[in-house]
């Protein structure tokens, strides 16, 4: 119980919110809109997986929203030219991996602080994207949406695939040496080095994975509608960071579980519809989100204080 305090308390808060909705707004549980709502969160979920890894290795990446936007436009333009979806996917993954690798080189090998590096790369990608695309939507061919399947099949596929990826990465993190290396480097890079792990390579790899996941997320977002909005990545990094933080991933590195981040994301993503269903005015949303983040970390702080005293 104690080991999973954070993950369980977030899950508890989520269950509470869902219970409130079940009592006062049963409409929330209509199956089709619920499926759509969940599907809409899959890109954010993919980014959250990457961000969790980045934070476990004691770094942060605030350029993922901008990377997501670039990958979305890359994938969109390629799809619009008539190329098969697999080509667009490969290009988006490659673009993401390259942008992630750039972050990785600067952070892992040159030892520069990730928050500042990713701030600079965020600005760079966002401004180049604006200059290049000028806010123009990309209209996609008909067979791109839902991979050319029916809507419900596409939605179920997206959800199944993302959750499968979450479970897979979660398993790898726990059971494979590569995954354990991420925790080791995050909690103490020097100790990890002495134990024969290459901290630079581990950190670099995590940033490449982050970028690649941003590419994947962009494609999963693209297939949900017949158009690509080049502004689709704006502020997504904050959502992913907040989800990981609420889910118990420590910014000081070395601690965190993917299912905690998953619960954190679901909690944050449920607040917005909950306001609509409970008839709360939209201008409360940011304040409530801030409060949830603070409550999550305060609970953590109070608990660890009681333990030490």
């Amino acid at each position: 119980m104690n080991r999973y305090f954070r993950e369980l308390s977030v899950t508890g808060a989520l269950v509470l919110l869902l219970a409130v909705l079940a009592i006062w707004a049963p409409h929330f549980y209509q199956p089709q809109p619920l499926l759509s709502r969940f599907t809409a969160q899959t890109p954010a979920l993919i980014l959250t997986i990457g961000m969790t890894l980045v934070m476990i290795v004691r770094q942060i990446d605030i350029s993922v929203g901008a990377q997501f936007g670039v990958c979305a436009v890359v994938a969109g333009l390629i799809s619009a030219s008539g190329a098969p979806l697999i080509v667009a996917l490969a290009a988006a993954l490659a673009a993401g991996a390259i942008m992630g690798a750039l972050n990785g080189v600067l952070i892992a090998w040159m030892g520069l602080p990730s928050i500042v590096v990713s701030l600079a790369t965020m600005v760079t990608w966002a401004e180049l994207l604006r200059l290049f695309q000028q806010g123009k939507f990309i209209n996609l061919p008909a067979n791109v949406q839902w991979f050319g399947l029916s809507q419900s099949a596409g939605q179920q596929g997206l959800i199944f695939g993302s959750v499968l990826l979450l479970a897979g990465v979660s398993w790898l993190l726990k059971n494979r040496s590569g995954g354990r290396h991420i925790y080791a480097v995050g909690s103490d890079a020097e100790a990890a080095r002495l134990a024969g792990i290459n901290p630079k390579l581990t950190t670099f790899t995590v940033f490449v994975i982050m970028g690649t996941l941003a590419g994947l997320a962009a494609v999963l977002n693209m297939v949900q509608s017949p158009q690509v909005d080049p502004k689709c990545g704006v502020a997504l990094e904050l959502r992913a960071i907040a989800a990981a933080v609420v889910g118990g991933v420590a910014v000081s590195g070395g601690r965190g579980r993917l299912w905690g981040s998953f619960a954190g994301l679901l909690l944050l993503a449920t607040i917005n519809p909950a306001l609509t269903f409970l008839h709360v005015e939209a201008y409360w949303e940011k304040a409530i989100q801030g409060l949830v983040i603070l409550l999550a970390v305060i609970a953590d702080g109070l608990r660890s204080r009681r333990q030490t005293s």
Partner: peptide
């Protein structure tokens, strides 16, 4: 509802409005 000038956010808000 505000959509932050983003199409995807507008889509999510509209989905919520339709079932709420």
């Amino acid at each position: 509802k505000p959509c932050d000038d983003q199409k995807d956010k507008a889509q999510q808000e509209a989905t919520n409005l339709l079932s709420a």
